[in-house]
Each structure stands twice: as structure tokens, then as C-alpha cells.
């Protein structure tokens, strides 16, 4: 009886020690799930999900505080990927957060811009160049199309222009079998 107790106690001490050591030695900094979710999100940083950026939204999803269907730029494909990753049910995009739109970039009308710098402060990725009382312009390869610069503009000189297809970005279509009309 006593020996059995001693054996169990010794086992508990040994295993406990090993676990305690492992907890310190193999400690994971940060939440790897947040990074995985963040990698799926489109990084538009538009805030349409109700969080101030993609990373905060990823943190909220990982913490169970947010649904996976709140990201309009990620679209249906993004929701499917999140559902796959998290083992949740697919849900259609929440219309309250917005609708899926083709990728666009902001364009500043250079004749109307008064150089107020408000859009520069609003841009989450520093994609607008300019200075006070100088004309501003959008560095379009860096623009994520978040539309955050539109509201602050006092003269409404920013418009969203859809990004057209070029020879370099053109994609082959999915091969479809043409259905012949009945003779």
C-alpha cells in the first residue's frame, strides 16, 4: 500500500516537474492562432469589421469575440478559409459590415485638393504622400482600397477607381464546356 502511494507520488512529482520545465522551456510568445487568422485576412486595414485593423479583428476572432463573416474585402473566399482554419460553419458575409467590391484604389483629384493632410492622417498604410498646403497623391501600388481617406476629405476630392486588368494580371478562365444550342 505504502509503496504504491510512494510510486504514484514520485511519478506525480517527476511528471509535474517535466511539465513545469516544458511550460517554461517551450513557452510560445503570442498566440499562434492570431497570426494564422491574420495571414488569411486581406490586410486592407479598413475597419469595416468594427475593429481598428486586421490584427485586432484576428485577435477578436481567436478570442471568440467576433464572427468570421465580418470582413467584406476578404469576401466569401476569406470566410471559407477562416471556417476551414477554425472548424466553424461557413456563414455568408454579414451585410452590416459592407459588401464585397472589386479591388479599387483611391485617386485624389489634383485640381481640387487643398493640401489639408487629413487623408494622410487617415491612411492606415501611409500610402498618401504630401505635405501641408501641398498637393497630395496616392501611391497606388501601396493603396489597399480601404476608403478611410474618403470621409475626412473636406473638399470630397478622393474617389475610388477600380483596378483594371492588365496583360500582367490577366487570368486564364476556368475551362468551361460550351453547351451547344439544340438544332
Amino acid at each position: 500500500m505504502l509503496s504504491a502511494l510512494l510510486v504514484m507520488a514520485a511519478l506525480a512529482v517527476v511528471i509535474g516537474g517535466a511539465l513545469g520545465y516544458a511550460a517554461v522551456r517551450f513557452r510560445v510568445e503570442g498566440d499562434p492562432l492570431v497570426d494564422k487568422i491574420d495571414a488569411i485576412l486581406p490586410q486592407t486595414q479598413c475597419g469595416q469589421c468594427g475593429f481598428p485593423g486586421c490584427k485586432p479583428y484576428a485577435t477578436a476572432i481567436a478570442g471568440g469575440e467576433a464572427e468570421i463573416n465580418q470582413c467584406p474585402p476578404g469576401g466569401e473566399e476569406g470566410i471559407r478559409k477562416l471556417a476551414d482554419l477554425l472548424g466553424r460553419e461557413f456563414k455568408p458575409l454579414n451585410a452590416e459590415n459592407g459588401v464585397e467590391k472589386p479591388k479599387s484604389v483611391a485617386v485624389i483629384d489634383e485640381n481640387t485638393c487643398i493640401g489639408c493632410t487629413l487623408c494622410i492622417q487617415a491612411c492606415p498604410v501611409d500610402a498618401i504622400a504630401g505635405a501641408a498646403k501641398q498637393m497630395h497623391t496616392v501611391v497606388d501600388p501601396l493603396c489597399t482600397g480601404c476608403e478611410l481617406c474618403i470621409a475626412p476629405c473636406p473638399v470630397d476630392c478622393i474617389t475610388m477607381e477600380p483596378v483594371g486588368e492588365t496583360v500582367d494580371t490577366w487570368k486564364w478562365h476556368y475551362p468551361v464546356i460550351p453547351i451547344k444550342t439544340a438544332a
Binding site: 490586410q43 485593423g53 486586421c54 492606415p124 498604410v125 501611409d126 501601396l142 489597399t144
Partner: peptide, 17 residues
């Protein structure tokens, strides 16, 4: 291309913050 653009955006967003 999309992933590269997202990586750049993430980096710039984090740098800005």
C-alpha cells in the same frame, strides 16, 4: 501577388502604429 500586397500592407500598418 495578393499575398505579397497583403504582406506589404501589414508591414506598413504595423510600422505606422
Amino acid at each position: 501577388r495578393q499575398k505579397d500586397a497583403a504582406d506589404v500592407a501589414r508591414e506598413r500598418f504595423e510600422f505606422r502604429n
